[in-house]
């Protein structure tokens, strides 16, 4: 993982077609909200994850933010390291470019947001996002007023930021590892950290220009191939169990070590079984609309 350049120059804003709003990093007079995560201060308490879940009622099995955990070295010379993950609110978001209905868009101040009423649930943005920052909401929710079967993601808590608050995960961070602010404002803590510290971002080679910076990032935990190759046996089994028991609304899960063709067939049967449910849900919604 290479060290990210300071990324405050407008020249760094690459390929803005399809982004709907030009990149605003380093543009005088424009706000550009960013987050710096100081991994030296993260203790892996997961407060940020819980705060985010509570703020939005994020369903089980999906995350707007989560914390990766890794063990570095061998006993007795080992230590545990953590890396919080969330949407990178890229200056050049691939998800925005590839969304066919403009359901996801980039706010001028840097937030990459989702409009549920426009989302058709095609999951193109989920496929496009290199950071796994998007998830598909399940068909059933405990609160019937919340959206279902559309894509959701981290919003950098725009509703809080607009009221002068910091995002819920930043508020809840006990170690003060998450720092949020306007990177274009030289007086902000974020701008000072970006100017002063050695920072890394996830997958800089993709040219997405992320707005989540890490201090003290370990290249191995940030590297996708390394992640895949160096999972514990328990992690592998956890993934397999999750995918094996998943009868959800995405039909692409394959379980490692089991018959691929069986899972291809099972995915198809799950898909066919979902059609009547979706159909009757739509009929019920139409009835409600017309006759309520």
């Amino acid at each position: 993982m290479t060290t990210e350049s300071k990324q405050t120059s407008p020249a760094h804003a690459l390929r803005e077609y399809g982004s709907q709003t030009p990149g605003t990093k380093g543009i005088p007079g424009k706000r550009r909200y960013s987050m710096v995560i100081d991994l030296r201060k993260c203790i892996g308490c997961m407060s940020c994850v819980v705060a985010c879940k509570a703020e939005y009622g994020v369903p089980l099995g999906v995350w707007r933010t989560w914390v990766m955990v890794a063990d570095k070295g061998r006993y007795p010379n080992s230590r545990r390291i953590f890396m919080p993950r969330l949407c990178n609110h890229c200056d050049y978001p691939i998800c925005v470019r590839n969304c066919p209905t403009q359901a996801t868009f980039k706010h001028e101040e840097g937030f990459v947001l989702q409009r549920y009423n426009r989302c058709i649930g095609c999951r193109t943005c989920v496929v496009a996002c290199p950071y796994n920052a998007r998830h598909f909401l399940p068909a059933k929710r405990t609160n019937n007023n919340l959206p279902v079967l559309v894509v959701d993601k981290c919003t950098f808590c725009i509703h809080r930021v607009k009221k002068g608050l910091v995002p819920a995960c930043v508020q809840a961070c006990v170690g003060g590892a998450r720092i949020f602010g306007d990177v274009n404002d030289p007086k902000s803590e974020v701008a000072k950290l970006v100017a002063r510290e050695k920072l890394t971002v996830l997958k800089p080679e993709l040219g997405t220009s992320p707005s989540v910076y890490y201090i003290g990032g370990d290249w191995e935990i940030m590297d996708e191939p390394h992640n895949y190759k160096h999972r514990t046996a328990q992690q592998k089994e956890e993934f397999n169990t999750y995918k094996r028991n998943h009868h959800g609304d995405a039909f692409g899960d394959i379980v490692e070590g089991e018959n691929t063709m069986y899972h291809v067939g099972k995915n198809m049967s799950d898909f066919l079984a979902s059609i009547p449910h979706k159909f009757f849900d739509v009929v019920a919604a139409l009835k409600k609309l017309l006759f309520a």
Partner: peptide, 13 residues
């Protein structure tokens, strides 16, 4: 470095 915990994600398509 061994990854001991990460969130689970689905193949969307």
């Amino acid at each position: 470095t061994i990854i001991t915990y990460n969130a689970v994600h689905h193949a969307a398509w």
